[in-house]
Nucleic acid binder design. Structure first.
Length: 876
RNA sequence: GGGCCCGUAGCUCAGUUGGUUAGAGCGCCUGCUUGACACGCAGGAGGUCACAGAUUCGAGUUCUGUCGGGCCCACCA
């Protein structure tokens, strides 16, 4: 078997990425009623390019999916395993990209008709939308590409209409004029979630409103003085001492000719500012409600373009911030400005374009959330859906209990157009699955479709079942719903996960997934968020190529404790690369050997088999619990520290490598979910022709636990470590053969005898073994200079053998060594004292479990033996 | 204002139901071109687990408080 001298993932990763797709390796068959595992990908935006966040999420998902695909039922049957891929049309995000492209041609959206714009957007999608999919394929994610979906596919559009109509017919979707978050740049309403609040340094302007027919005036405080032009009332608290004399009166609104009433309302906090609040029903949601309570008119002074409207009089046409400056200066000139205080306030910004949103009243479509939330809350409360880590359910509940209606309409051109038709005659709205030809009320044919589209998250909310063919009763739907698992970031729990649960419960009558794994964020080495503007992004396309995809995956996963953020640097990735390199080179060594018969098994063989079994156990348990860092760590320790550093080294003096091949093969299977490329490559180099991804995953077998082998091996590790320490301390080069005298009782004598050659070769030793009682001095040492000898008690503190060295060039123990021995002695004395105190404590002996007490006794004996050895060493 | 999380070796972090000298990677020190790998091998240094109490035979792990840091939600002008 040939294998390249250097690990160069670039030479085989693209090949396997293509091969897997061509061979449909990850195609899932739908067998309704049979055991299955299914997971719908969090669909990346079509606008996107693969970033580290995707890479991390996909590494987690892929590890889980590959593991599940390899698992067999207790009867040995494979499980239908589906990872369904797809992309999201990403309403605003995509529209912005297309607008940008148009702008480069000197065009704006309005220059095109809606149809033309949509066509343009589709063209853009065809040209650019496949990019992220190609990148995912190159990264080797094990999706079933035959089931790839896009949220604007005809099938998914049908699901959107079906869901919309059902909700509308149940009265859960309605149209109405309410205060919404309006983005003046995107020219659309936004949901509450699409507004990011950011604290900023602002001011609190105190403005004096003269009371009509009185010398008195009321001072109101505002953070947005430009809205005063739209004031239609002033509220004071009913308990305000001024209430009696001011209540049924008016104030004169400065800079205008309007008089507006003073009303009593508890919204005015006596303790805040001046105790009086201006009411601007058109530009603040609190005021909107207050306006309704007091039947105040609403005057819109800021338009959808964030410029002052005609209603603002001479300020009309000014940008809202320019208007603010002018209004403040005029108020100041006219003496209406009482004072200005610095003030911290939260400014809402559009999460797509960062423009400050304007609260405006407008007619929008809404979804009633309370009735939908109840079953979704229950599903998590009673455990039909569980969060990993469990703490996230609190965040979920917090939001769900306080949920507010969802503004689902967007004034965009890219998205699912709302299936509602307005009658030109009777103005009735007809909501229908199929495009109607006549008004449902008056029968008129003068119908025009609603121009708004749906929030992109509406279609995402249907994703776990719309992708499986819903509303049709398909085999896929019956075979794979509810999906098994959702893996996603905490940032879209509300946007997406919660809405999928609500819509899944409503449309399917069942949860959309049984588990939600919430992963952390990939940050840079300084724990800063990665962003293009900061220039601190680690681009997966670059590092996948430089270090190999396996390396990036492994680096990410070994650092990924559940829910925790990852501080990513190239060192983390290099760690993965180093591991892959190690696997590669270990395989090179192995493949240079004749497999042989594999019939005979040495102690090393039995030991590594037992260790592999332990690693298999940990890996399986860790994957089950989504503890990928633990799985990665277990396979790392097994492969590097045990398989390479001990097993292969010992094996070098063996002629029969058959067993090593068997262990190596199982190790590849064990590693595959974490490092799919290198394991596939090595699997084929071993002569297999089908994908390793479809092989059964190793299972833990209690019968393979070999306590005797592990105990015996520990003994050799102790001997060798002891020798190595001695060599370094006394600067005895490995070229010098050391003579080791060992006396052991019956069974240990045989063990040491049988394995002597391997140890001798490894450390250039000559072992002289004596069979006999462990006490007393070795006869072979009688009469020798004690300076040449150290004594040690080995084997888990049992005095099974004593050990002596003969050092060819006489050297006395160095001071360094003496210091260390002294330190060891001190430490041991402390630990021994502690253990003794514990064991003499009656409460401890009475209350602690037996294994803890026994364990401590064994340890104590071991400590004492070590102490004795150290004392002898010091006396040398 | 409400909620969540974190503070363990120089750095980045593990440490599941409390239990036997607290671990890893990187970095550091000392050796080593040992016939797979210097992306390596061997040996080593380094931690009063933020602080103060409490519970317990026993606390990095549970509880309370303090200090420090981060995140999310919220219509206090």
């Amino acid at each position: 078997m040939e294998i390249d001298k250097v690990y160069e993932p670039q030479r085989f990763e693209p090949h396997w990425a293509e091969w897997w797709v061509e061979h449909n390796t990850y195609h899932a068959e739908a067998h309704p009623g049979e055991p299955y595992f299914s997971l719908a990908i969090p669909p990346p935006n079509v606008t996107g390019s693969l970033h580290m966040g995707h890479m991390f999420e996909h590494s987690i998902i892929d590890a889980q999916v590959r593991w599940r695909r390899m698992k067999r039922t207790p009867e040995g049957k494979s499980v239908d395993t589906l990872w369904l891929p797809g992309t999201d049309h990403a309403g605003i995000a995509t529209q912005i990209m297309v607008e940008r492209q148009l702008a480069e041609e000197g065009l704006s959206k309005r220059d095109l008709r809606r149809d033309a714009f949509e066509a343009r957007a589709w063209k853009w999608k065809e040209q650019n939308g496949g990019r992220i999919v190609e990148q995912m394929k190159r990264a080797g994610v094990s999706c079933d590409w035959s089931r790839e979906r896009f949220t604007l596919d005809p099938g998914l559009s049908r699901a959107v209409r079906e869901a919309f109509v059902r909700l509308y017919e149940k009265g859960l979707i309605y149209q109405g004029d309410y205060m919404v978050n309006w983005c003046p740049r995107c020219q659309t309403a936004l949901s509450d979630l699409e507004v990011e609040h950011e604290e900023s340094e602002g001011s609190l302007w105190h403005i004096r409103y003269p009371v009509v027919g009185s010398d008195e005036s009321i001072v109101v405080a505002t953070t947005r003085p430009e809205t005063m032009l739209g004031d239609t009332g002033v509220a004071i608290n009913p308990l305000d001492p001024r209430a009696a004399r001011l209540h049924p009166r008016n104030v004169k609104l400065p800079l205008t000719n309007r008089e507006i009433p003073i009303v009593l309302d508890e919204m005015a906090d006596l303790a805040f500012g001046s105790g009086a609040v201006k009411i601007t029903p058109a530009h603040d949601s609190n005021d909107f409600e207050a306006g309704k309570r007091h039947e105040l008119p609403s005057i819109q002074v800021i338009g959808e373009d964030a410029k002052m409207t005609a209603a603002s009089g001479k300020f009309a046409g000014l940008d809202r911030y320019e208007a603010r400056k002018r209004i403040v200066s005029e108020l100041k000139e006219l003496g209406y400005l009482e004072k200005i205080e610095p003030y911290k306030l939260n400014v809402g910004k559009c999460h797509r374009c960062k423009t400050v949103v304007e609260p405006l009243v407008s007619k929008q479509w809404w979804m009633k959330m309370k009735p939908l939330a109840a079953p979704a809350i229950a599903a998590v409360e009673d455990g039909r859906i569980t969060f990993v880590p469990a703490n996230w359910s609190k965040t979920y509940f917090e939001w769900m209990y306080n949920i507010r209606d969802w503004c689902i309409s967007r004034q965009l051109w890219w998205g699912h157009r709302i299936p509602a038709w307005h009658c030109g005659d009777c103005k009735t709205v007809t909501v229908a699955r199929e495009t109607p030809t006549q008004c449902s009320k008056c029968g008129s044919a003068k119908l025009t479709q609603e121009t708004d589209v749906l929030d992109t998250w509406f279609s995402s909310g249907l994703w776990p079942f719309s992708t499986l063919g819903w509303p049709d009763d398909t085999a896929d739907l019956r075979a794979f719903y509810p999906t098994t698992l959702l893996v996603t970031g905490f940032d879209i729990i509300f946007f997406w996960a919660a809405r999928m649960i609500m819509l899944g419960m409503e449309m399917m009558g069942d949860v959309p997934f049984r588990q939600i794994h919430i992963h952390g964020l990939v940050r840079d080495a300084e724990r800063q968020k990665m962003s293009k503007t900061k220039g601190n992004v680690v681009d997966p396309l670059v590092v996948n190529d430089k270090y190999g995809t396996d390396a990036v995956r492994f680096g990410l996963l070994v650092a990924a404790a559940p829910g925790n953020d990852i501080a990513l640097s190239e060192e983390v990735i290099a760690r993965g690369r180093n591991f892959a390199n190690k696997i590669w080179n270990a395989s090179r060594l192995l493949f240079s050997k004749d497999p042989g018969a594999g019939s005979r098994t040495s102690l090393a063989d039995r030991w590594i088999n037992s260790r592999l079994n332990a690693a298999v156990k940990t890996a399986n348990e860790s994957f089950k619990d989504h503890r990928y860092h633990e799985a990665a760590d277990a396979v790392w320790t097994f492969f590097w520290d045990e398989f390479c550093d001990w097993y292969l080294e010992l094996k070098k003096s063996d002629t029969d490598w058959g067993f090593a091949y068997q262990v190596h093969e199982r190790a590849l299977l064990l590693l595959h979910p974490l490092m799919p490329f290198i394991t596939e490559e090595l699997w084929h180099r071993r002569g297999h022709e089908t994908s390793i991804a479809l092989e059964p995953y190793p299972e833990y077998d209690p019968a393979l636990e070999d306590a005797a082998a592990e105990r015996e091996m520990r003994a050799f590790v102790l001997i060798l470590t002891s020798v190595r320490q001695r060599r370094v301390e006394q600067k005895i080069d490995k070229k010098h053969e050391l003579i080791i005298y060992v006396r052991a009782t019956g069974e240990w004598f045989d063990v040491i005898q049988d394995n002597a050659s391997a140890i001798m070769r490894l450390e250039n030793l000559k072992l002289e073994i004596e069979n006999g009682s462990p006490t007393g001095r070795l006869t072979k040492l009688s009469g020798r200079n004690s300076n040449q000898v150290i004594w040690g008690c080995l084997f888990e503190g049992q005095e099974i053998c004593k050990l002596g060295f003969e050092i060819p060039e006489i050297t006395r123990p160095t001071n360094d060594r003496k210091d260390r021995v002294k330190k060891d002695i001190e430490q041991l004395e402390k630990v021994i004292a502690n253990s003794k105190r514990q064991l003499e404590n009656e409460s401890f002996v009475a209350k602690a479990p037996a294994h803890v007490i026994d364990g401590m006794r064994v340890k104590l004996a071991e400590y004492e033996a070590q102490l004795a050895k150290n004392r002898v060493a010091l006396a040398e």
